[in-house]
Design a protein around this nucleic acid. Sequence first.
RNA 1: UCCGCGUUAGCUCAAUGGUAGAGCAUUCGGCUGUUAACCGAAGGGUUGUAAGUUCGAGUCUUACACGCGGAGCCA
Length: 431
Amino acid sequence: MQKVLICDLKKYIGQEITLRGWLFNKRSSGKVIFVILRDGTGYLQCVYFKGNVSGETFDAADKIGQESSIEVTGKVKEEPRAEGGYELDATDLKVIQNTHDYPITPKEHGIEFLLDNRHLWLRSKKQVAILKIRHRIVKAIRDFFDDKGFTLMDPPILTPNAVEGTSTLFETKYFDLGSAYLTQSGQLYAEAGAMALGKVYTFGPTFRAEKSKTRRHLTEFWMVEPEVAFADLNDDMDLAEEFLEYIVQTVLKNNIDELKTLERDISKLKNVKKPLPRITYDEAIEILKKKNIELEWGKDISGADETIISNQFDRPVIVHRYPAEIKAFYMKRDPENPKVALAMDVLAPEGYGEIIGGSQREDDLDELLKRIKEHNLPQEAFDWYLDLRRYGSVPHSGFGLGLERTVSWICGLDHLREAIPFPRMIYRNTP
RNA sequence: UCCGCGUUAGCUCAAUGGUAGAGCAUUCGGCUGUUAACCGAAGGGUUGUAAGUUCGAGUCUUACACGCGGAGCCA
């Protein structure tokens, strides 16, 4: 007897096969029991007719509870009445473990309960679809950079100090060396890598201890950060738009079924092709002004205002040249207007907000020293970073993309917590 | 840190200050094509915690705990 996966079913039409998995749901009508099997690759309706199977098998099928682990045997046939188009004419059932009282019933549940049971919630249809799309996005990210000659470089997760000096960090004791902090960005290390390898990217978890309590925040999230030597801000924006197009089009190509499960409106995703519209911060203020919103020059664009701006476009929009004051110390000033930084953010459509933030880096040693002083940062902590400007400094740029925000946008989720298997939020670190 | 909302059966929710209820889940029974199947029955409760007002509190008051959403900050 061949053991096959539900995703490979169509190769076995007319054959008797065995599948293993879990009982997703069950319906019965006296002499016929419909067992919906779930194996991680799909869902299959298995039909147990009283006359076609032994009495013990029929009783066993009648008694299994939701999420029991089972092994089913039967003949595959095409069946338009079954979801998915295939059905198993079952002849046998082996119960690996019968279980009852599975907490997550096929009815609605509140978010607190679902998060408490996240380890089980992952089995539900929607969560399986999200996990598969997240995997596809991660693979697309790695393929994209690999095909372009980038080298993956893993930055440290334990760091001696704050990268940007602004965010609140998770602090931990580090033997006799005092405190260490969980990284909030691998960028400065990526810059060292770019000077060694030309084009690098980092990809790993990052941590923010800020007490942010919104649908757009996690305390632990994944970020991918490319860094390119001999690249200016325009090169950076070119890379970002090609990158986003590749990610979204790859998901559309490979995960249509999952997007359907999530009831995602894919017409908006299909638009994600280069070139992306590019506007300056000043132009963003003009757009807001036309909507009767006054944003004082020098103030950061709020989440609500980001949505208004992105609603003016049918695809992600790049906003560049922000006031230098509100941006990080390492960002290069625009030589044509020193009040603005050569920085750019990519705002996702449909209110999903900032998914990419990047910039051309300050490559001049004296300028960088000045910025470190202005931001009251401890210069000695950045000695190694300043060496990158002492020994063969070149113009270079990079950006960071928040993985969960990207997953959330592409899947059309209403909260970031569903975009990562086990979310870490300010009032939750279990399961 | 601030603002708002919430906490009643395993879950989702009802209940004018006056006998705590329904659907789902569970158990039992019925049904030969179900699509969150349906029909019948049963079990299941210290109403978040503590105090107070009242003849009487799930309901009103206060404090606390926990959670959710938002602001700020950020990806």
